[in-house]
Simulated scan of single mutants.
Amino acid sequence: MTKLTAMKEISEFDSAMLADSTGIDIVTIHMVEQGIVPVHYDHADAMCRAMDVAMTEMFPSLSEILTLADALDSEPELQELFFDPANRMAIRSAGLDPDLRDWIMIVDLRSANERRYRVSSMEMDKIKNELVSAKDANGYICFYSDCQQVIVKKNAISEVSFVVGASYAQFSSRERAYAATMVFEGSARPEVVGLHPDGGDDGEGDHPFASLLDAALNGRDLPPFLKVETEDDDEERFVSIHGLEVLEIPMGVLFREIYSKNSDARYVGPDSGLAGMDAQGEA
Rank of each mutant, 00 (worst) to 15 (best):
T5P: 00
A6Y: 05
M7T: 09
M7N: 12
E9D: 09
E9Q: 14
S11A: 15
S15V: 03
A16N: 10
M17S: 13
L18F: 08
L18Q: 06
D20F: 13
G23M: 05
I24E: 06
D25H: 02
I26Q: 02
T28C: 06
G35V: 07
V37K: 09
P38E: 12
P38C: 08
H40E: 15
H40R: 15
Y41K: 04
Y41C: 05
H43A: 14
H43P: 01
A44L: 05
A46T: 02
R49K: 15
M51E: 12
D52H: 14
A54K: 06
T56G: 10
P60Q: 07
E64N: 11
T67R: 09
L68R: 05
A69Q: 07
D70V: 08
D73H: 07
P76K: 00
F83N: 11
D84T: 10
D84Y: 11
P85E: 12
A86V: 11
A86R: 13
N87M: 09
N87S: 12
N87P: 15
N87F: 11
M89E: 15
I91K: 04
S93K: 05
G95R: 08
D99E: 03
D102Y: 00
D108N: 09
L109T: 01
R110A: 04
S111N: 04
A112C: 00
E114L: 09
E114H: 09
R115D: 04
Y117G: 07
R118D: 04
S120D: 10
S121K: 01
E123C: 02
M124F: 04
K126H: 10
I127G: 03
E130K: 06
D136L: 03
A137P: 07
A137E: 15
N138R: 07
F143I: 00
Y144C: 01
D146H: 04
C147Y: 07
Q148N: 12
V150K: 01
K154A: 12
N155Q: 02
A156N: 10
I157R: 02
I157D: 08
I157M: 03
V160P: 08
V160A: 05
S161T: 09
F162S: 06
G165E: 08
A166F: 04
A166T: 01
S167R: 02
S172E: 15
E175H: 04
E175K: 01
E175P: 00
Y178I: 00
A179T: 10
A180M: 07
A180W: 04
T181S: 12
M182L: 15
V183W: 01
F184S: 01
F184E: 14
A188M: 07
A188L: 07
P190S: 14
E191K: 13
V192Q: 13
V193T: 10
G194M: 12
H196K: 13
D198W: 13
D198N: 12
G199T: 02
P208I: 06
S211G: 08
S211D: 13
L212H: 02
L213G: 05
D214V: 03
D214E: 14
L217H: 06
N218W: 00
G219D: 08
R220I: 02
L222M: 12
F225G: 00
F225S: 01
F225W: 00
D233E: 14
E236I: 05
V239Q: 06
I241W: 12
H242P: 06
I249C: 02
V253G: 00
E257V: 10
E257W: 10
Y259H: 02
K261F: 01
S263G: 06
V268G: 10
G269R: 02
P270W: 01
D271S: 09
S272A: 14
A275F: 12
G276Q: 08
D278C: 09
A283T: 13
